[in-house]
Design a protein around this nucleic acid. Sequence first.
DNA 1: CCGCGTTGTCGTCAAGCTGACGAAAACCGT
DNA 2: ACGGTTTTCGTCAGCTTGACGACAACGCGG
Lengths: 237, 237
Amino acid sequence: MAVAVDLAILTVRSGRLEILLVRRGIEPYLGSLALPGGFLASPEEDLDAAAARELTEETGLAAKGLHLEQLGAYGAPDRDPRGRVVTVCYLALMPDLPLPVAGGDARSAEWVPVQRVLRRRAGVAFDHAKIIKDAVERARSKLEYTTLATAFCSPEFSVSELRRVYEIVWGQPIDPRNFHRKVTSIEDFLVPTGKYTTRDGGRPAALYRRGSATLLHPAILRNGTGRRQLARLRQAR
Amino acid sequence: MAVAVDLAILTVRSGRLEILLVRRGIEPYLGSLALPGGFLASPEEDLDAAAARELTEETGLAAKGLHLEQLGAYGAPDRDPRGRVVTVCYLALMPDLPLPVAGGDARSAEWVPVQRVLRRRAGVAFDHAKIIKDAVERARSKLEYTTLATAFCSPEFSVSELRRVYEIVWGQPIDPRNFHRKVTSIEDFLVPTGKYTTRDGGRPAALYRRGSATLLHPAILRNGTGRRQLARLRQAR
DNA sequence: CCGCGTTGTCGTCAAGCTGACGAAAACCGT
DNA sequence: ACGGTTTTCGTCAGCTTGACGACAACGCGG
């Protein structure tokens, strides 16, 4: 039985959540889009190490420093026409970096808006649509209770850049003032650099670096599901 | 490369969180405790289906109705001395039911307090200690924001039985009055049966069934990490 | 049958968090 | 200098939370 490792690499780019897909150069699904990945290089290779290796091969970037976590194993018997393949999928988050065009592999890699995949406007190979759906949902929910959103930001970022990450990943607007109050009050989430930027126009924004915190307390909750939200909707009719 | 499916079956029993382990009847690790599990029965078997099958084999209970979710894949190259084995582990939660002694397999199954494993007072085979640690942590955190605690309860249960589940899994006391207010105010979490029980002594307690809700809003947070908790600790010195 | 311990349920209150929103600060380009 | 824009600080009502008092409703032992 074959074991493969696939990667769901997400980024926030040009105002959208996008995922890195490759155009397959071999059968099956020749020519369609698919998650980057491959079979284990050697029987001695650790799963996590294989994922890191693939990540470097596809993006040309050191896996070090990038967030990489296991998403889950997918093993429906008919998911690969070549036979039984179980794939262990990993989720990676990265800032919008220029990719060293077409990874080490001959296959060409491209950023695809996840909405295109989720709305079935872009067909993907195997059961990768389902995997991408899971990856996006994992990212969305992890923004709520971890500091993972900073993984989408460059090393130094402003509060509004962080807010834009939340808005784009969740697909809903967030009040800038309340967001600012919240994130700056969480200990060890953001550490000030003392520097300022005006790259968004307007008043200069303070730049921060990631702090040591990994869990958010209290969490930053999405709207739409909380009871307060529901109560308001009921009131408003 | 071999693919196995293992099970971390948790229950709340005699005031503790316990896990179902089997004593191995074959090498390697003959005689030690290990998670129940096995290799895929056939190349056509789905991972989820294999997990459900193992669950039935080991507990004699229909997997239907029990909570079963994937925990993750474990694939360190040296985790099995026989060679390269990737195992996909599943987490199952169940109420304290009498097991039809020693599952279908010849191996004997027994409930082991997780504390015994986590504190290394009970050695377990392979990398199963790590898996069990992950399973317990998953269960603990899922109690916070899902209705999963009811999976540890019998079909009809009182608020205090539910509270005891939280107290035992989290290992910390919870105020009965606040807990009662909270869980009864969450919509579709508990549906009253109209029946009452006195099995805990004292005033009869209303019996409830699981409601249709799966997510808790707002979440029931563990103590010890929230900022309010921290603030209080600082105050108290 | 009557107190008493036990457990379940309802209330109250202060403190904290959240969402909605006003307003000022500090930059840009014209 | 003057709007336009973005950032940041405040304010306020409404809700949730934790701590805790009070009472209800059982079983039990005397």
